[in-house]
Design a protein around this nucleic acid. Structure first.
Length: 125
RNA sequence: CCAGAUGGCCGGAUGGCCGCCGCCUGCAGGGUAACCGGCAGGGGGAGGAAAGUCCGGGCUCCACGGAAAUACGGUGCCGGGUAACGCCCGGCGGGGGCGACCCCAGGGAAAGUGCCACAGAAAGCAAACCGCCCGGCGUUCGCGACGGGCAAGGGUGAAAGGGUGCGGUAAGAGCGCACCGCGGUCCCGGCAACGGGAACGGCAUGGUAAACCCCACCGGGAGCAAGACCGAAUAGGGGCGGCUCACGCGGCAUUUCCGCCGCGCCGCCCGGGUAGGUUGCUGGAGCGCGUCGGCGACGGCGCGCCUAGAGGAAUGGUCAUCGCCCGCUCGCGGGUACAGAACCCGGCUUACAGGCCAUCUGGCAUU
């Protein structure tokens, strides 16, 4: 039988520098705990799964802090994204220094808010 | 008990829910195959510094006939350890501390060159600013100029040509003597650095090598983004066959004609190679225990163990309880270091909340 999970479309991952740069030119929404970027995949059909990428720059801190920020973002995405992410869209979650200390429920709310408010196909200001 | 010294060790714990990355086993499936993904179970999954990338190696590629020299860079008391080191251990010398103990770029300054500010008369070759002494002369009896002897005292300095004392002398001076220092010689101890002693010399050789330099020893370069393998699309290269040789262009010395070849199109094959993928990738100068040798660093032997391998980069997210620290209005609140493997080892350096153990030193108290 057909697996139910394929309809939920477990997201793939962004791995190449060029993909990140392309998404950075797309839509953007800033919340206290994180920054969300999103762009439509030019090479994908409407049924393809969304893809995710995670970034924390040197501004966040050392390697320990950057790793921890990316883990919290990845966990938040694992909780939220399967129900909210749209097909054929690439998302990039950018960590901030506040991502480290933002209370967990609020960080989840930040991601939900960003997903609701972001306007894909409108270029960033 | 207090203060301190040295060496070593740990660096949160338990549980619930939900996850991630390798490995092994089993099950069923897809595929001709290499293999691929799925489910279930088992087991593993950051550090003492993983850090800085400062030294030394392994490994890989490149260069190179061998060796040496020069240049450049590094190291620098002696002996030992080690694959090697700029590391470690044990000594020696110097310095600090009541002591346990700690610190030191610690070869050569009679191979040469340079420098030694300020002060001072003088800073490297002896010299004499104030002085001391002798002589004759002058004298207003205070002393003065001249000639000669001297370096004790004063003063400058980081440093003034051995130091202290006694003798000696016109005053002085290693001029003489004693002790200390220094120098080469000899003897003794030590593998050696060096230490101890003896007689002799009569002081000659100031400091600076973290100034150039000299001597001894060491060093080819680049790094896992090394390197190896596979290899799409597109463009381009080569080969074979076919088509057209109709137009155009070029070549066969030149012009005309004829002929041939190439540029063209299609198909198949081959090699290089970009994106990308696979590999290198973890079993090793490995770790633990015991034993033997050694003051020790360390080494020999025996037994046991397998202990992260990612790739925008796993090793976690979240909640609760406890421990520890701080504050407190005693129901509580806040904090819990430094820090994240990236080919692998040996070191060094730097960061670090809090805590534990052993040995030793100096006090105080008690017996």
């Amino acid at each position: 039988m057909e697996d139910q999970r394929t309809e939920i479309a477990t997201p793939g991952r962004l791995r190449r520098r060029g993909e990140f740069l392309r998404v950075a030119r797309g839509a953007k929404w800033v919340t206290p705990g994180l920054i969300l970027q999103a762009a439509r995949r030019p090479d994908a059909g409407p049924a393809d799964a969304p893809r995710l990428g995670f970034t924390a720059s040197r501004k966040v801190g050392g390697a320990v802090e950057r790793n921890r920020v990316k883990r919290r973002l990845r966990e938040a995405a694992r909780v939220i994204m399967p129900d909210r992410a749209r097909a054929a869209i690439d998302y990039v979650l950018i960590g901030r220094h506040t991502t480290l200390t933002r209370p967990w429920p609020k960080l989840l709310l930040d991601l939900e808010t960003a997903l609701r408010r972001i306007r894909i196909d409108e270029p960033a200001p």
